[in-house]
Amino acid sequence: GPMASDKRPRTAFTAEQLQRLKAEFQTNRYLTEQRRQSLAQELGLNESQIKIWFQNKRAK
């Protein structure tokens, strides 16, 4: 629909990254900035991508 703007492409996470994020989520529903930074480095992701993933996951 018209609401779907092309400005922010959805990140396609790899299965491996998703597995890691899910495991982290089961341990911590809320990430500290430090955890998020190390996860971002570990997974080669953007911190904001991880932050948003957690927000979306909590919203469900």
Results as ranks from 00 to 15, higher is better:
G1V: 04
G1S: 04
G1R: 03
P2G: 15
P2A: 15
S5N: 09
D6P: 05
D6L: 02
K7M: 11
K7V: 13
R8P: 15
R8Q: 15
R8F: 15
P9I: 05
R10M: 15
R10I: 15
R10N: 14
T11N: 12
T11Y: 13
T11E: 12
A12V: 13
A12N: 12
A12K: 14
A12D: 07
F13S: 02
T14V: 02
T14P: 02
A15D: 08
E16Q: 13
E16H: 13
E16N: 08
Q17S: 03
L18P: 00
Q19I: 11
Q19L: 12
Q19F: 09
Q19R: 11
R20K: 08
R20Y: 04
K22G: 07
K22Q: 12
A23N: 08
A23L: 11
A23F: 08
A23Y: 10
F25L: 03
F25C: 02
F25R: 03
Q26N: 14
Q26A: 12
T27E: 13
T27W: 07
T27Q: 12
T27V: 12
N28Q: 06
N28P: 01
N28R: 06
R29E: 08
R29P: 13
Y30T: 10
Y30E: 07
Y30K: 07
Y30C: 11
L31Q: 03
T32R: 03
T32L: 02
T32C: 06
E33T: 13
E33M: 14
E33A: 14
E33C: 12
Q34P: 08
Q34I: 10
R35W: 04
R35C: 04
R35I: 05
R36L: 13
R36F: 08
Q37T: 11
Q37C: 06
Q37E: 06
Q37G: 07
Q37L: 11
S38E: 10
L39S: 00
L39V: 03
A40L: 01
A40R: 01
Q41K: 12
Q41V: 13
Q41M: 11
E42K: 03
L43F: 04
G44E: 05
G44K: 10
L45T: 05
N46F: 09
N46G: 09
E47G: 06
S48R: 11
S48I: 14
S48L: 12
Q49N: 05
Q49P: 02
I50G: 00
I52N: 10
I52Q: 14
W53V: 02
W53I: 02
W53L: 03
W53Q: 00
F54Y: 05
Q55M: 13
Q55A: 14
K57E: 08
K57P: 03
K57M: 14
R58K: 04
R58V: 07
R58M: 07
A59S: 11
A59R: 15
K60V: 08
K60R: 09
K60I: 09
K60N: 07
